[in-house]
Design a protein around this nucleic acid. Structure first.
Length: 195
DNA sequence: TGCAAACCATAAC
DNA sequence: GTTATGGTTTGCA
C-alpha cells in the first residue's frame, strides 16, 4: 500500500507518496490539487494507495527535507531513499546523474546526455516526467546557452529556486557519476542573464 | 539572431 | 511493431 501525505509550509504545498520507507513520488506547488495530481500521476499503476491526514514519522522527515530543498539549503547529506526500481534503466541513470548536481551549480540537458549516454531531448523528456521534484533537482538542468529551458511548475518557480541556491561559485566542476563524468557550472552563469 | 535538421529514449497507438 | 513527442543541440545563412 502506497501512503500519500500532504502538508502546507509557509504557503507552499508539499505532497509525498511513500512505500515501505521509500519515496515513490514527491512534488510541491502553490496549488494543493495540482501538486497532488502530479504525485498521483507518477504512482506505479499496479499498487493501491491511500491518502493520510496525519504524517507518519517518515513522512514528517520527508517534509522537513523538502522544505530545506525548497529554501535552497543543502539537503544532500540526507540521502533520501527513492523508489526507482520500477522505472526504465535509462531513466534511473539520468535521475541519478541529476541527483549528483550540487547546490550552487547547474548543468545542461546535453551535459547529462554526454555523461550517461543518449541524447539531450531524451534527457529533457525525463526531466519533464521527474517523479521526485524537487529532491531530484531537475531545476538545476538548463539549456546549453544557460537560458532556463522548461519547468513543470513554471519558469518563475525554477528561477526562484536557482536564486536561493546561489553560492557565489565561479569555476566549473567535473563530477563522477554512474557511467561517466558530468560537467556542472556555477548557477551564476544562469542568473546573470536575469540581472 | 533565426531556422532546419539531427538526435534518442519513452509513451502512446 | 510503429509512430509521435519533446524541459535540446548544432550548424549555417
Amino acid at each position: 500500500m502506497i501512503e500519500i501525505y500532504f502538508k502546507s509550509l509557509e504557503g507552499t504545498w508539499f505532497v509525498v507518496a511513500l512505500h515501505k520507507h521509500r519515496i515513490v513520488a514527491s512534488s510541491f506547488g502553490e496549488n494543493k490539487e495540482t501538486t497532488m495530481k502530479s504525485v498521483l500521476g507518477n504512482l506505479p499503476f499496479n499498487v493501491p494507495f491511500q491518502v493520510f491526514l496525519e504524517p507518519s514519522a517518515f513522512a514528517a522527515k520527508a517534509f522537513a527535507a523538502l522544505k530545506l530543498i525548497h529554501e535552497g539549503r543543502d539537503a544532500g547529506a540526507l540521502n533520501l531513499p527513492l523508489a526507482t526500481s520500477h522505472l526504465p534503466a535509462y531513466t534511473e541513470k539520468v535521475l541519478s546523474a541529476t541527483l549528483a548536481i550540487p547546490v550552487g551549480y547547474v548543468t545542461s540537458y546535453g551535459s547529462i546526455a554526454k555523461a550517461v549516454g543518449g541524447g539531450p531531448r531524451a534527457v529533457g523528456n525525463i526531466m519533464a516526467g521527474n517523479p521526485f521534484a524537487p529532491i531530484v533537482p531537475c531545476h538545476r538542468v538548463v539549456k546549453s546557452d544557460f537560458t532556463l529551458g522548461g519547468y513543470g511548475g513554471g519558469l518563475s518557480v525554477k528561477l526562484a529556486l536557482l536564486r536561493r541556491e546561489r553560492r557565489g561559485f565561479s569555476a566549473l566542476r567535473d563530477i563522477q557519476v554512474e557511467g561517466g563524468v558530468l560537467r556542472v557550472f556555477p548557477v551564476e552563469y544562469v542568473l546573470r542573464n536575469f540581472v
